[in-house]
Design a protein around this nucleic acid. Sequence first.
DNA 1: GGGGGAAGGACCA
DNA 2: TTCCTGGTCCTTCCCCC
Length: 700
Amino acid sequence: MGTSSEGDRPWQSYNTVYTNAKAGMDGVDKEKVQRIVYEMSKGSKYFENEKRKEAFIKQKIESLRAQVDKLTDKDVSHFQMIANKKILELEASRDLSKVWLHTDMDAFYASVETLENPSLRGKPMAVGGLSMISTANYEARKFGVRAAMPGFIACKLCPDLIFVPTNFEKYTFYSELARKVFRRYDPDFISTSLDEAYLNITEVCINREISSDEVAGELRNAIFEETGLTCSTGVAPNLMLAKVCSDINKPNGQFILPNDRKAIMTFISSLPIRKIGGIGKVTEHVLRDVLGIKTCEDILQNGAFLCALFSSCSSDFFLSVGLGLGRTDTPDIKMRKSISSERTFHATNDENFLFQKLADIAETLSNDMKEKCLSGRTLTLKLKTASFEVRTRAISLQKCIHSKEDILSCASRILRAELPLSLRLIGLRMSQFSDDKNSHVDPMQKSIVAFLSGGDANSSPTLPKKQVCLEVGDKLEDHDGLDFSEGQSKQDVELDFQVADDHTGDKNDDRFSLLCDSHCSVSSSIAENFKSNDSYLDEAKPDKSVEPDELTYSVERLIEEVGLIWVDDYICSVCGIELPPSFTEERREHSDYHLAEMLQKEESSRGRGHLAQERRLVRFLYYVDAIPMHHNVISLFKFNYACLWFLKFISETKNASKQSPKYTKISYHFILLQERIHMYKDGYQNYQACQTTQKYKNNN
DNA sequence: GGGGGAAGGACCA
DNA sequence: TTCCTGGTCCTTCCCCC
């Protein structure tokens, strides 16, 4: 798009969805339309974003080409075998027993408007506004104006264009009139939009002993008589082909593809892949530029490469297209999966305006949900920035919600975490509805308190799985059982933690390096001690001790006080999940989840006995000393874990061995731990303060 | 390897 | 100057089982 190699006609490579040919656009000067669209779009933020997306697709194409180049003859014959097998299986599934009819109203919205206002007849007209056109009549299409085109570009293409605002009540009324006709031919007809439907006319043809051609003609006449509108129909053995056929003789026409394999293969052989539903601008571009595929016939000839490059699901789809196969059954009633509402506005970073918009959208969504009796637990916030970049942020809740207040409360917290931003669109989507199989929360879920009091390892909390960004968690796990091999050096430990740096963003932080260096010099001796001496427990010489009850209380308070540490007050230091500070309750549950998970692991390794656990704890204390200061973000969680471990240990041992020397040592270690937690926490707060100062400096 | 959540994107009308 | 809305499905990443 717009590179120098395109010389003086850069518009030729600027292909938007509306520069592609559509019914009624045969005589259009495509070059002129493309040039005007390009001239009007050039330099806009939308155009820049399109360039970015185009570059991404080009990169994908290059990568696929490289994969093709790498394939050896042996690989190709291997994938050819796979493709042949798939083709045989698909061919065996071919069903020519059904007759499907697809009907599509001609320029539906525009036709309805003309029907209600005959003065529009014969004049170029579009339904929509200056920002976007929903549909254009055939007079307007002669100028290159079409659906999905911005109105201001359409104005340039056709200066006399008349704009009519959309009126869905009208369209729904006429759609219902047409549906009454459809019902007479197939009570179970499939409606895909206000103006399109699939009808299974197999029975009608058999019972009335008439051809599908006659049924199609009859149906079109009935539609015209009862609505005053024209439609086009296509008849074929499956839904995919019927849809393609209805487009062939548009407007006000019909096309019949007989239920005959040879006729289908002839029809499909020269059919451009873009005509197939599911193959859009990007897929067409990729298949053409990587494998030179332009028609459905080309697909079958490239079966081996398609199997080599794409997922099984995608290659199956492509091959079935190449064979002219499609669905032949009426699908079961489809349950709605999500419901959403979104609004576009002039790009702004005015937070009051954005939150007001959010409230409006939350209200619309809530009303829509109430109307449809829906309640969901996953809320997705969609944002489109001033530069057309789209972001989505989802949150799954413990319970289903539908009220405006609940939706707005969650949405505001997610939005707040994204600001400041200049936005041009906000949207909200609700999914995981209350009657979904997967939407319920595990009834066995227990809080951390219940877990501790019950000690039931099998009923640990089962919060939804979260994506883990910090690989270091796993690596820590290997060692933090505090069983890391005797030969492992401090450098090894640090190497593992280096991974954490990349995620927490504090790599190369000079202020922190200073803290680390000073700390490392101390910790190295401890690490040495740790490595060389396995009798650490006996060597711990406590000079103070605490009562079991007092210790329990202290540990509980410490857990309360420290909580999970959130990197930049936003990202969980354990798994990387992002939860804004205002999500207090969710944060507490999240901490519970991690801690319970750790405890469960402890439970499952109980075979090692208490002494082993003591040893592991003390090893752990040495180990945290060996952690450079700036890694405390990660290690603070480990302190939490240790606290819980303490609690468990205390509850199990306090009756039996309050005075035992081991208990005394453990309580001593707890005091050390407590001190360190505060020290590390202070260190982290200093670090955060430095970060804030740095951000301020950078911004200025 | 399959299932599932999150995020992003393709596609459709 | 200006490029929608609402919905579904697929892919990718990455975890857990």
